[in-house]
Amino acid sequence: MALNIPRPTIERLPLYLRCLSRLKSSGVEVASSDELGNLLGITSVQIRKDLAYFGEFGRRGVGYDVQSLLAQVTGILGADQPHKVALVGVGHLGQALANYDGFREHGFNISAVFDADPNKVGMTVAGQRVLHSDRIPEVVSQAGIELAILTVPAHAAQRVADALVKAGVRAIWNFAPTRISLPDDIEVRQENMIVGLLALSYYLAQREK
């Protein structure tokens, strides 16, 4: 079913999860699509359409049971079970990501950390001893790791990604400043830190004209 879900809908699910988590923490028990829409800046029609891809939620004229919908969205996102994550590249960005508490809160556990720099091998990052990247095939395969975060230089990204996939990784979050090419059955999310700043810079430049 997931293959037929529009990507924008999938991208909005984490927003719904965060919003529902905050509502639950605030003691809110029921919320309408209008209320969710106002909090998220998304139309109520879009919210109902997104959720309809996954089943029937809420009651007309009443709204959504916050705790129930939170559990449903958590399950849809696969965040109701722990995930082992490998992180490759322990520069400043890699270490910052590895130590981000939000990952653990949603069940994403940094289970192995790698780097090709001998000076970084042996360090402790996020409670894990940094291993040399040459050990990716052995460690990732034995640990059954299926998710990886890539924060390596551009020239190493494709080689490392290939090694991760061969070891059993099925999804990669790529922060390397280059695109990686992998088989169609491997999920890749490409991030480029400078793209966001350049886009903001564009809007500032247009205002000044």
Rank of each mutant, 00 (worst) to 15 (best):
Q128K: 01
G127C: 04
I47G: 02
V188Y: 02
A86H: 02
V113C: 00
P118L: 04
S181N: 15
A52K: 09
D185K: 06
A156H: 11
R48F: 06
R18K: 14
V125M: 00
R22Q: 15
G102K: 06
Y202A: 12
L87G: 06
L77R: 05
N174A: 11
R22H: 15
L3Q: 15
A171F: 13
Q128R: 02
S141R: 06
I5G: 05
A154M: 05
N174H: 10
S201Q: 12
K24C: 09
R22F: 13
G27F: 08
I47M: 04
A171D: 12
L198P: 09
G37H: 05
L93M: 07
L51D: 09
L39P: 10
R135M: 07
P153I: 08
E187Y: 12
S201A: 12
K120L: 02
Y203I: 12
A163V: 09
P118K: 04
G63L: 00
R104A: 15
V28P: 07
E35K: 09
P137C: 04
V188T: 05
G107N: 02
V30N: 01
I180G: 07
E29F: 05
E191Q: 15
S44P: 05
A52H: 09
H132A: 03
T43N: 09
V130E: 00
F57H: 06
R7F: 14
P153N: 05
A199H: 07
I42Y: 09
R159S: 15
G58H: 00
T43R: 08
I194C: 13
H132F: 04
K49E: 13
I110R: 04
T74A: 06
K209W: 12
Q206I: 12
S68D: 12
L70P: 00
A199Y: 08
E146Q: 10
D134C: 08
G102F: 10
F108P: 02
Q95A: 08
A154W: 09
E191N: 15
R170V: 12
G75P: 03
S44G: 07
V160H: 05
V139T: 01
A163P: 07
V139M: 00
A176M: 11
Y202K: 12
S141K: 05
G55E: 10
R60D: 08
E56H: 13
D50E: 07
A148R: 04
Y202T: 13
R179C: 14
A161G: 10
T43M: 10
T74R: 07
V125L: 01
A156K: 10
S44V: 04
Q206H: 13
G122E: 03
P177I: 11
E191M: 15
D101Y: 14
Q72E: 15
S44Q: 06
G122Q: 02
D134Q: 08
P6A: 03
